[in-house]
Design a protein around this nucleic acid. Structure first.
Lengths: 333, 333
DNA sequence: ATGAAAGCGCTAACAC
DNA sequence: GTGTTAGCGCTTTCAT
């Protein structure tokens, strides 16, 4: 049964001091006599006092809260990004609000609106849809520091932090060309062009393998399985499959093996992202690992820079920046 | 570049009405002339006005926000629970705040404190540690409606919503005894007793297979792989492995197969939870699926009941309740 | 139907 | 070093 609400007023009364003194004691922002301070702290503890951050934020006109919008937490890559962001922000004294769009742009918009209504210091958004999320990113940018993460939308004036997908494909192409039998067919199993990452990876692939076959679905295990079955039904043998994401690659492997096809003997499968389970696959998946830690650190820097910006909009260039991080090849096979 | 802050005062001034009128027009809480209302709405739109939820919450002394604390988002079962909670709450008009503890009870405590400071209507917590999280649950209970989800701590006066782990083990035992060759050794691969779910599943197993071997690690893919390697190193052949979670089961399969061992021919593996990837394994993992949707709906009911409770603590019994949901066997093999 | 004003909990000027 | 007070943005009596 929750306590009756206890405010700083109650603490002050209990300690026999003024509100200001109680506030100063609790936030430790001003020097004061040790005797009073400890008396206030004792009262606070006794009354089970907990600061009301709403009141504080309203008064201070700022609070250390960052909102993160992700497309879908069932996708392990996004779950991992969220976990890393959570750690990074917490360590730096920022609270992280998370909203999962569950694949819906409407839900995404609603989540971001809620962030802004809650006066978050910054919005970090992994956009659901390259086209349809643009409005949401635009809107967020008009209200708070907004950072696009991993996926970019068209023409929004918000800084982007993500990995260099083209370069990642360069690494994969190089790996294939230096290790695979040249006769082997190379097939791209990607996702529809609803996100910049899907598009860039596809384009990167096409640049290296012009005319090669491409199959597009969604970033999901299910699509990988479906694609595998399609390939089997068509009688495809012995190909190198380049997946646009580890989750698709794992689906491919699962789908191939369930039909008795050997990986990597019959089919070779290569992933992208570097999620945990990829390393544990049998054999370990060859993939391109995104430098998630570096990207999170970069976002923190941006948030901090804006935080220190006492004259907002003056010194810091709020223009669009693009911060690309280099992924690294992780050879499994 | 963010706008200068625009408040309801600006809207009122722009529309040439009082603050009260502007507020009523925007929240639609009172009847008023259509002409004024539309004028206010137009001004709000023109000024790109966005309500400040901090001010509203402070004034109303409540807001429709629920905090969810999870142990670790890299665990796909928790990611899935989070995704489901997000959908459920959003659909019901509640905003969901998510905090991931990343396995640390300190981080968990910090996250929950932040929730409470933010005056959340309810706290839903999947406790990290059966013993060490007790204090945090206790504390949350003293400040807001608190619901324990999936994992329970010792002696906290907070309602619990989760699946009936003992019953789940009954189902698994029955399945094994009716389908496996009796000679096959049965081994439990679980997690240390840091959570109630780990403990209950272990106890459920021991009840059906007294004296059977048990191996305890963590709820992770890595532990499943390690356990598999340990079994192989010992020369174990042909056993039925009961994993305490799908994620462990998937690790076991991966570990076994990487040494050329066939599943399910040589070893049979059974999981628990019913996460998505389990269904896509090859062959599909036999597991016990938790009724996640029902559990989320149940939590929503509890939150709503408390929400409607205008005289808090009077009608609703804020005592400890235990709501068990029945898992269902999903046969993969 | 509309406006004036109080006040949610908190902190930061400003007095003393 | 401590107290008094204004006010952050909002809703909601209470008047009119």
């Amino acid at each position: 049964m929750p306590d009756k609400r206890v405010t700083i007023k109650d603490v002050a009364a209990h300690a026999g001091v003024s509100l200001a003194t109680a506030s100063r004691a609790l936030s430790g922002t001003r020097p004061m006599s040790e005797e009073l301070r400890s008396r206030v702290m004792a009262s606070a503890a006794e009354l089970n006092y907990q600061v009301n951050l709403l009141g504080r934020a309203l008064r201070q006109q700022r609070h250390p809260v960052v909102g993160l919008s992700v497309p879908d937490l069932e996708n392990p890559f996004f779950a991992s990004l969220t976990e890393h962001m959570s750690r990074t922000m917490r360590a730096a004294g920022f609270e992280l609000l998370v909203s999962s769009a569950g694949g819906s742009v409407e839900a995404e918009a609603e989540g971001v609106r809620a962030f802004l209504g809650r006066q978050v210091h910054a919005v970090v958004i992994i956009a659901c849809d390259e086209a349809q999320s643009a409005e949401t990113v635009q809107f967020a940018s008009s209200k708070a520091l907004t950072i696009q993460f991993d996926r970019r939308v068209e023409g929004a004036p918000a800084t982007f932090v993500g990995c260099d997908n083209r370069y990642g494909m360069d690494l994969i192409a190089e790996h294939i060309l230096t290790t695979a039998p040249p006769a082997k067919e190379v097939i791209f199993v990607g996702a529809g062009a609803k996100s910049s990452s899907a598009r860039e990876r596809l384009q990167g692939f096409e640049q290296h393998f012009p005319g090669a076959r491409t199959m597009l679905g969604t970033f999901s295990l299910a699509w990988g399985i479906t694609a595998a079955e399609q390939l089997i039904a068509e009688g495809t043998h012995n190909a190198t499959l380049v997946a646009a994401a580890d989750i698709i690659a794992l689906g491919l492997i699962s789908g191939l093996r369930s039909h008795g096809i050997r990986v990597p003997e019959d089919f070779r499968v290569i992933g992208f992202d570097g999620i945990g389970p990829a390393a544990f696959a049998h054999p370990p998946l060859t993939t391109v690992r995104q430098p998630v830690e570096d990207m999170c650190a970069s976002i923190l820097d941006l948030v901090r820079a804006d935080s220190n910006d006492l004259d907002p909009g003056a010194s810091s260039p709020h223009g669009k920046q693009v911060l690309h991080y280099e992924p690294k090849l992780v050879c499994g096979t």
